[in-house]
């Protein structure tokens, strides 16, 4: 490992994707503002952004593209960071941040809200999704957390899968027995940013901020934990504290993402996975780059979804899989690198 970081060629190869990514972030934001299902010329968009423009352009920019871009940034950031934390914490490169019951809890709560409470607008889902996600992950953590912090959280992941399965089954049962709820859940479940206004993003902002703070607290110990939990403790890492921070960050961020866009499963898995292949083994680096890469992927996927099936839209959650899956497979075929 030391020999690798010492080689200037390796270092340069590692810096290049990061630089490219940093440059692509503003490009993705600009794309998200300029391109959409309503094919307006960039001049009109600019006019609307600066306060002028006709009614159509200002509606499209103010009510659709601006709030949607903000929502995309929130979702991408949350999924990228929580995915990287999840894979570092579980030492499992296939772990998805929704695994601790977050996605299943959010879906279940939204299904209940739609089928039995009569909630109809995406803004109304937020509270339910966050509540369901946090409650489910609390149950998972309470049931599956290792009593000895030195043992790897394999059982926690299994518990997450088991509890998640129960909730997913109930969710499917609810939606299949009520066609109206079924139709709503189908769209929500695909993961989409369509019609997500500021009300939605504002409502999850506290959750997102709390998650980011927890991620910052957890980050310094990640490298030590990735080498092995016994070793980390020997190095003086307070495992209980770092575990608590990592778990809080994973669930809060994944809950924030699920509340805005629905359970987008693929971003949190593929982004840190691919980033690890590009930037190497430093977990803090993976975390930071994943945050940016998550935002870029979600924004680009959303833009593609807006123009792919005019005059309709393809949900961003579907597009991310269409883009991310081939990338993942291609990298898996090329790369000799394996684990963390």
């Amino acid at each position: 490992m030391t020999s690798r970081t010492a080689t200037p060629v390796g270092a340069r190869r590692r810096r290049l994707p990061v630089v490219l990514l940093a440059a692509s972030l503003p490009a993705a934001v600009a794309l998200s503002l300029l391109v959409g299902s309503n094919l307006l010329p960039p001049g009109e968009i600019w006019a609307a952004l600066t306060g002028g423009g006709d009614a159509t352009a200002s509606y499209v920019v103010e009510h659709q593209r601006l709030p949607r871009t903000v929502a995309g940034i929130v979702v991408g950031l949350a999924l990228g960071v929580s995915g990287a934390l999840m894979q570092a914490y579980t030492r499992n490169p296939f772990a998805d941040p929704g695994l601790f019951g977050v996605s299943a809890g959010a879906s279940f709560a939204v299904a209940v809200a739609v089928a039995y409470v009569g909630v109809t607008q995406p803004a109304g889902y937020v509270g339910w999704a966050v509540g369901g996600a946090l409650l489910a992950s609390l149950v998972v953590v309470a049931l599956g957390r290792p009593t000895d912090p030195r043992t790897p959280p394999t059982r926690l992941v299994l518990t997450g899968v088991a509890v998640g399965a129960v909730l997913a089954g109930l969710t499917t049962g609810i939606s299949l027995s009520d066609p109206d709820a079924f139709e709503r859940m189908l769209t929500w479940h695909a993961g989409s940013l369509i019609d997500r206004g500021y009300d939605v993003t504002l409502a999850v902002l506290p959750v997102l901020l709390a998650g980011v703070v927890a991620a910052v607290v957890a980050a310094p110990s990640l490298n030590a934990v990735a080498l092995g939990r016994d070793l980390a403790q020997a190095q003086g890492v307070d495992l209980r504290r770092s575990d608590a921070a990592a778990l809080a960050a994973i669930t809060l961020l994944a809950a924030a993402a699920a509340a805005v866009a629905g359970p987008v499963v693929f971003v949190g898995l593929v982004v840190p996975h691919v980033v690890r292949w590009c930037v190497g083994v430093d977990q803090r680096r993976i975390l930071a780059v994943s945050a940016v890469a998550g935002v870029v992927l979600v924004l680009v996927a959303d833009v593609v979804g807006r123009v792919a099936v005019l005059p309709g839209e393809m949900p961003a959650g579907i597009v991310t899989a269409f883009i991310g899956a081939p990338v993942l497979v291609a990298l898996a075929r090329r790369s000799r690198a394996t684990g963390l």
Binding site: G36, S37, T56, V60, R306, V309, P311, G312, E313
Partner: peptide
């Protein structure tokens, strides 16, 4: 046909009926 909310003005008509439960 499904319409993006950005193109909602294409739904304009003298009489517009919106379904609900």
């Amino acid at each position: 046909v499904d319409l993006s909310p950005e193109r909602v003005l294409e739904a304009q008509a003298d009489l517009v009926l919106v379904t609900t439960t």
